[in-house]
Amino acid sequence: MIPPIAWLQPWQVWATITSWNSGSGVADQSGKPNPLHLLNRYRLEHFHAHCTLIEQLFLRHWETHLHTKSPDPSTSNWACILIDDRATQHTKTCILNTLLMTRLKAAVTIYTPASKREAFANLTEPFGQFVKIETLDRHGVSDSLGWSKYNNLLKSSLFWKELSAQQILIFQPDALLIQPLELDELHFDFAGAPWNKGRVTSCEFPTYNPSLQRTGSNWVNQALCQTVPDQTNNGNGGLSIRNPRLMQTICEDHGQASPDDEAEDIFFARFVGHAAYQAKLPSQDVLNRLFNESSYSDSSGFHGSWYYLDASEQARLYEKHAKHVIGMLLGLG
């Protein structure tokens, strides 16, 4: 007798979408997990595999090149911000890629609990002249940095007040810049990947009986961006451009009233368009060319898009990234 499959538990299959299949979308009455959650685990590992290949084939050469470079403090008024507590090889790849795609015009600052500082220092030591590490203890984060602490940190005016750069690029380890950003042209106060509230996608899974004979199909639907307020499009915070002074002001004006479980990007998106702030925001066309997440565009970067896009669309983004990395490194000579 073949032993039963040891299905991954729901907490082992991280997903950011909401499924419309059976209740919470985690498991059906047979105890089997929602197939979409298993597919999303595959998609996540596919993203990690892409990043690993990019690092092993190309970014190692970029890292070696950085040994010969020194920061130029006069290059720009930008900073790239990573807020995370996972000092992994994957995170290192994302940092190297961000330095490449910003052409060293913006150094990277990592915000992490003090307990993780040494690990990040060791991780980035080969190019440490382009990386600054700040601890979060003064913000009440001394151990781990979960979803709630991350969002509450970014809804704190004190955090934004500490930032001296005129503009920042926030990037998370599940985001990638896939072509160079023209920083001198991106003087926006807030710009993140467009949300697509109301979009519903369907995914077909073949079904089989215990004899492994095909019995039909199971269609699993997913409704995207359900927690996003109506008429809100700009934008997802995982890969985003921010004006720290505007973020600080919005936090001072509205931060205390934001629920603890409100995502920071939704919080800011509710207010950046208010006339009182006179924020410079990108048009829809510019936004689509910048970043994407839940709908495809020929963008300069993506955040978690593999959970939402068709496989052929995501493949185009991966290949576009590889081509730009290759071209930039060949350009170095």
Rank of each mutant, 00 (worst) to 15 (best):
V141A: 07
C251H: 09
K197N: 02
I5Y: 12
A193D: 00
D265Y: 00
F188M: 05
C203S: 10
F120I: 03
N236Y: 00
V220G: 09
T91V: 09
V108Q: 02
F171K: 04
L104W: 02
K280M: 04
W62M: 08
T232G: 06
N34T: 14
A87N: 05
W7F: 14
E63Y: 02
E185C: 13
W160K: 10
Q56L: 10
A193Y: 01
L176V: 03
S164E: 13
S22W: 08
P10L: 11
H67M: 11
A315L: 11
G146D: 12
W20T: 06
I17H: 00
N21R: 10
N97H: 08
T88S: 14
E134G: 06
Q314H: 10
E125P: 03
Y42S: 08
K161I: 11
D285V: 15
I266W: 02
S142T: 15
G235P: 03
D310Q: 09
R199A: 07
M328Q: 15
Y42C: 15
W306T: 06
L239R: 00
F127W: 07
S240H: 01
P210E: 12
V220T: 11
D265P: 00
L176G: 00
G327D: 15
Q284P: 08
E264N: 03
Y277P: 03
P173G: 04
L169H: 02
Q226C: 05
T88N: 12
R242G: 01
G327E: 15
V272K: 03
S294I: 01
L36F: 05
N34C: 14
C94L: 06
F171V: 09
Q231G: 09
Q89C: 13
Q314V: 10
I250L: 08
L96P: 05
P194Y: 00
W62C: 05
R60K: 06
Q179P: 09
H324F: 05
L177E: 02
L66Y: 02
E262D: 11
I133N: 01
A275I: 10
G192Q: 00
R86S: 10
Q167P: 12
N292W: 02
S312E: 15
N218W: 12
C225R: 00
D84H: 05
E63A: 07
A165Y: 00
F130D: 12
D285M: 14
P126T: 07
I250M: 09
T249A: 04
T124S: 08
A87D: 08
T88C: 12
T98R: 04
L96R: 11
E182D: 14
W195D: 00
R245Y: 02
D260I: 11
A87W: 04
R138Y: 08
T16F: 01
L145V: 15
A269S: 13
G216C: 08
L330A: 14
P71Q: 14
L183I: 12
Y307S: 01
L239V: 03
E293A: 04
G23D: 09
R138P: 13
